[in-house]
């Protein structure tokens, strides 16, 4: 009897948790496949579904408050995300390896600088970042957003990678040096292949962060051709009558890439990122 009560309590809690976590997602998907005439009936279930909202998105460009093109925004989002992954990961690998294996004069200073960036909220630097980018003539270009994503993701990635590189036994590297390999060769031939899971986890982290970027994109990209998906989505909110069905369909499409990325790499994410946080 006691066991049944215990089980009942456990699954009751589980259901509450899942309702809390998943209901908003369910509501997004449900709204996106509702017929227009059902939109304002907030029933929890529907019997007739339609894909007309998705078709409207796919047959872009749309006119909401202004004319915007879903594909353009999608392409820009992908360019920013992939650009940030490549740039930030390369620099993080170098920095992480440098901090893990090299001895130099200002090591403490460099690691404190990295910690400072990690702790500084990006939103506190947004306006002067914009001013600075305008001085450099980089404003209104995707590169400026990639640079912002890069600098703000390096510290965390370099930290995780440093932990990973330090965990590889030094003897492996030393025997490679004896065989006549240089620093770079050791890094590419030995260290990086051994760190593949952590590299996947950090790449996912950068991708998701860049995919999410809103404030810097809002500031730095003012021509519509350069807009990213978050800007595309928030434009809808400025309309007098918000077309919720289309907006939710666009949200679903925007949500899919990071979800796939996350669930494919979940094991590495939890092992690499969270274990790193717990150790500290």
């Amino acid at each position: 009897m006691n066991k049944y009560i215990k089980n009942f309590v456990i699954y009751f809690i589980a259901i509450i948790i899942l309702l809390f976590s998943l209901f908003p997602v369910y509501w997004m998907i449900l709204t996106s496949i509702k017929r227009y005439e059902d939109l304002l009936n907030p029933y929890l279930f529907i019997t007739k579904i339609t894909f007309e909202n998705y078709i409207k998105i796919i047959s872009s460009p749309l006119t909401i408050t202004t004319t915007i093109n879903f594909y353009r925004c999608m392409t820009n989002s992908i360019i920013i995300a992939l650009g940030s992954v490549i740039l930030s990961l390369s620099i993080s690998i170098l920095l992480g390896y440098g901090l893990a294996r090299m001895n130099f004069k200002f090591k403490r200073l460099v690691s404190n600088a990295s910690l400072f960036v990690y702790i500084l909220p990006p939103s506190f630097l947004a306006i002067p970042f914009f001013v600075h980018m305008r001085m450099l003539g980089l404003v209104n270009s995707l590169i400026s957003v990639i640079l912002a994503e890069t600098i703000f993701t390096i510290p965390f990635c370099a930290w995780i990678l440093r932990e990973q590189f330090s965990s590889i036994p030094k003897e492996i590297e030393e025997s490679a040096y004896i065989d006549g390999c240089g620093r770079l060769e050791v890094l590419f031939r030995i260290i990086l292949p051994l760190s593949a899971p952590t590299l996947v986890a950090t790449a996912t982290y950068i991708f998701i962060r860049a995919w999410n970027e809103y404030q810097y994109a809002l500031l730095l990209l003012y021509s519509k051709d350069l807009w990213t998906l978050p800007l595309f989505l928030t434009t809808f909110l400025a309309a007098d009558v918000i077309p919720w069905g289309i907006l939710m369909a666009a949200s679903v499409l925007y949500t899919i890439p990071p979800l796939i990325f996350y669930y494919v790499t979940e094991r590495y994410m939890i092992k690499g990122l969270i274990a790193g946080a717990v150790k500290a």
Partner: peptide, 29 residues
């Protein structure tokens, strides 16, 4: 259950904010 419960974390920030905006709409939410 844990795998499903995690879902809000990888969900993009802007789309989840827009869902909340819609769910808490004063007239039709």
């Amino acid at each position: 259950i844990r795998g499903l419960f995690i879902l809000p974390w990888p969900l993009p920030i802007i789309s989840s904010l827009i869902i909340f905006y819609w769910m808490f709409d004063y007239d039709w939410g």
